[in-house]
Computed example of a mutant assay.
Amino acid sequence: MATADDDGRRRSRWTRLAVPVLTGTAMILIVSAIGYSATTGTGRSSPPVLPSAAAPVCDQPPTLALVRPGGGPITFPQVSYAIDHSGGRPRIDLAGSYQGVIDEGKRVAVIVRGEPGSYDSAAGGHPGEGRFYYQREIQVDEQAGCWTALSLSPALSLSPAYHGPDGPLWHIYLVLVPADFAVTSVSARGHVEDAVFGSLEVLADFLVGG
């Protein structure tokens, strides 16, 4: 027959067994809850999104050109221009952003061609001559990723000369040239032979005017 002492001993034994079991079970439930939270995203903060590199902000003329990339080590994501007709002959300002590195001993030059199928607004109209004329090298700000080519004078690319207040279409090329290009490959009037132009690496081209 069981006595009160026997009941007390059994309860004590069950208590000693139950406490570690319950403690272990609680730990398992806590670990499981943490694992579930990690897999479902509950209570987990998202990793920070790294900002993308900011595009260069450059001072630019008001009219955006439609640029056709030509390939090569330098690209021109954006080109803008302005045409000043106040002096009787047009002056063109170009500016924009660029990406890449201009190698030592190289320059980026502006070459202009008056489109033969377009005319100025003078009586009878002077058509684009269809020849290539060197203008100048672009000026670059390497830190900002910006460039300019100001006060270009494309009138020589018309035949016989520009007279009207409005211009034809000018095809403008940004080309990679040797540093001595203006001395060795350009005539006194700025003309660049077709064969010479054909040997150059065109980085970008676009139309201006019209």
Rank of each mutant, 00 (worst) to 15 (best):
5 D>E: 12
7 D>M: 09
7 D>L: 05
8 G>S: 04
8 G>H: 14
18 A>N: 10
18 A>F: 05
19 V>L: 07
19 V>E: 07
20 P>G: 04
23 T>Q: 06
26 A>R: 04
27 M>F: 11
27 M>E: 08
30 I>L: 10
32 S>K: 05
32 S>D: 04
33 A>S: 06
34 I>R: 13
39 T>Q: 02
45 S>I: 02
46 S>L: 06
47 P>M: 08
48 P>N: 12
49 V>G: 00
50 L>I: 03
53 A>P: 09
54 A>D: 15
55 A>I: 02
56 P>G: 14
57 V>P: 14
58 C>E: 06
60 Q>T: 12
60 Q>Y: 08
61 P>N: 08
65 A>L: 12
71 G>D: 12
71 G>P: 01
73 P>R: 03
73 P>G: 09
77 P>M: 06
78 Q>R: 09
79 V>P: 03
80 S>T: 13
84 D>N: 09
85 H>K: 07
87 G>P: 15
91 R>L: 09
91 R>S: 06
92 I>M: 15
93 D>M: 05
93 D>A: 08
101 V>C: 08
103 D>S: 14
106 K>N: 14
106 K>D: 09
108 V>Y: 08
108 V>W: 06
111 I>P: 10
112 V>E: 11
112 V>Q: 10
113 R>Q: 06
114 G>R: 03
116 P>C: 05
118 S>E: 00
119 Y>A: 02
120 D>P: 01
120 D>V: 05
124 G>I: 00
124 G>W: 06
127 P>C: 13
127 P>N: 04
127 P>M: 15
128 G>N: 14
129 E>I: 05
133 Y>F: 07
135 Q>E: 15
137 E>R: 07
137 E>G: 09
137 E>L: 12
139 Q>K: 12
142 E>N: 12
145 G>I: 06
145 G>T: 04
149 A>W: 02
151 S>F: 13
152 L>T: 14
152 L>M: 12
153 S>Q: 11
154 P>Y: 12
154 P>C: 13
155 A>V: 03
155 A>I: 15
155 A>D: 11
158 L>V: 13
161 A>I: 04
163 H>Q: 15
163 H>M: 05
164 G>K: 08
165 P>M: 01
167 G>L: 08
168 P>T: 13
171 H>Q: 01
172 I>P: 12
174 L>P: 03
175 V>I: 10
176 L>N: 05
176 L>P: 15
176 L>S: 12
178 P>I: 14
178 P>N: 11
181 F>K: 05
182 A>M: 14
184 T>Q: 01
184 T>D: 01
184 T>K: 11
186 V>Q: 03
188 A>G: 14
190 G>Q: 00
190 G>R: 00
192 V>T: 10
193 E>D: 03
194 D>Q: 11
194 D>K: 07
196 V>H: 06
197 F>H: 07
198 G>I: 10
200 L>S: 03
200 L>I: 06
201 E>G: 07
201 E>H: 08
203 L>G: 02
204 A>M: 09
206 F>H: 13
207 L>Q: 07
209 G>N: 00
